[in-house]
Simulated assay, not measured.
Amino acid sequence: MPTTTRSATALAVACAVVLLLPACRPTAGPAASPVAATPAATASADAAAPTEAPEATASPTTGAATPSLTTGPTPAASTPAPVATPTPGPTTAPRTVTLPAPGARFEYQLGGADEPADDTAVVVRDSTAAPTGRYDVCYVNGFQTQPSQTERLLRTEPALVLHHDGEPVRDDGWPDEVLYDLTTPELRARVAERVGHVIDACAAAGFDAVEVDNLDSYTRSLGRITPADTLAYTALLVERAHAAGLAFAQKNTAELTTQVRALGADLVVAEECREWQECDVYTAAYPVVLDVEYDRAAFDAACAEQSDPATRAAGLSVVLRDRDVSPRGAPGAVHDAC
């Protein structure tokens, strides 16, 4: 099952990240118009790999070896042989992505696909579901394994799983999910290739954006994964999404908002940002914020704020869902929006 609600991180850690990231991108333009991906997060169309089924395990790729430094006497200078100047190859224009209208009504359908309401403009669904033909956001578990893949990965590629004292590090709230090991550039590249096949499959299916969950996994890593590791890996996923023509949605983790936005992320999917008083952090950085509340009182408070011109956030859309995000007609299902 895809992740639903997770506890918000209490401590701000943005100041702990080494400030090597570029400045935040300018605010995106009008809704539904093409938005160019930032240069740091753009790849050519040729970079998109052939898609696989989301459940398929990607073949690992290894990073380039770092050349060793040699000491000793400096060799005598010699006249270099003439070298032919290569002819520049054709260049490929950067892919562009689109965003939904700020404040557009959306539905969060991770627990099962539904026919959207007539006035719904944006639908978030799991990567295993089909898009609706509206503005479709594809859910991908990018920092932890999906439950159906966990045991297979532990058997076939255990090096991609974070371990502590010989045991895989699991999410306490979702113990059938284990954390990917993002502690070295080589591991980040291998995990990004694996998750990248799912991102490519979302694009091939016709989705418009990708929501990559568990950005906050580093807070559950027993100190093994740092915010800097997380951001370096996120940069690879943003690049992969943009190369496939998909907008990239930050998922939760308000404390890294400035840094993730600077990497080229385009919008936010947040859970309970009104409950945790985080919506302003997201709306200050992004033109589109899709907020899912699970508590009726928090939802009503958010709707009251959105109905008042003095407190309304133009880019914020809010829905109320049951914690199992069940389809309509299921026992206990809750679907409401304002």
Score class of each variant (00 low, 15 high):
2 P>G: 03
5 T>A: 14
7 S>V: 13
13 V>Q: 05
19 L>S: 14
27 T>H: 00
29 G>S: 03
33 S>G: 01
33 S>D: 01
34 P>W: 02
34 P>S: 03
42 T>Q: 10
45 A>M: 03
46 D>G: 09
52 E>L: 14
53 A>G: 10
57 T>P: 01
59 S>N: 10
63 G>S: 11
68 S>Y: 04
74 T>G: 04
79 T>E: 13
80 P>F: 07
83 V>C: 13
86 P>K: 10
87 T>F: 12
88 P>M: 09
90 P>L: 13
90 P>G: 10
93 A>N: 04
97 V>M: 13
100 P>I: 02
100 P>C: 06
101 A>Y: 04
103 G>E: 10
104 A>T: 07
104 A>F: 07
104 A>K: 03
105 R>Y: 09
106 F>V: 02
110 L>W: 12
111 G>M: 10
117 A>R: 12
117 A>S: 11
117 A>M: 11
118 D>C: 03
118 D>E: 14
122 V>K: 09
123 V>N: 13
127 S>D: 06
128 T>F: 04
130 A>Q: 06
130 A>S: 09
132 T>A: 11
132 T>M: 08
132 T>C: 12
133 G>Q: 14
133 G>R: 14
140 V>S: 08
140 V>H: 04
141 N>W: 08
144 Q>F: 13
144 Q>M: 15
156 T>I: 10
164 H>W: 01
166 G>C: 02
168 P>T: 01
171 D>L: 10
173 G>T: 08
176 D>F: 06
180 Y>E: 11
189 A>Q: 15
191 V>W: 04
193 E>Y: 08
199 I>C: 12
201 A>H: 15
204 A>I: 01
204 A>L: 05
211 E>L: 08
215 L>R: 03
220 R>N: 15
220 R>V: 11
221 S>N: 09
223 G>N: 05
225 I>R: 12
227 P>M: 04
229 D>S: 07
229 D>C: 07
233 Y>N: 00
233 Y>H: 05
238 V>C: 12
238 V>A: 13
239 E>C: 02
247 A>V: 13
248 F>H: 09
249 A>M: 07
250 Q>C: 09
251 K>V: 04
255 E>Q: 15
257 T>V: 12
262 A>E: 02
267 L>N: 04
268 V>I: 09
270 A>E: 07
276 W>T: 15
276 W>A: 14
277 Q>A: 14
281 V>M: 09
281 V>S: 13
283 T>F: 05
284 A>V: 08
288 V>A: 07
292 V>M: 06
297 A>G: 00
304 A>L: 00
304 A>I: 00
307 S>L: 03
308 D>I: 04
315 G>T: 00
317 S>A: 08
318 V>G: 08
319 V>F: 05
319 V>N: 05
321 R>D: 11
322 D>C: 08
324 D>Q: 11
328 R>E: 02
330 A>F: 15
332 G>I: 06
332 G>W: 09
333 A>Q: 08
338 C>H: 06
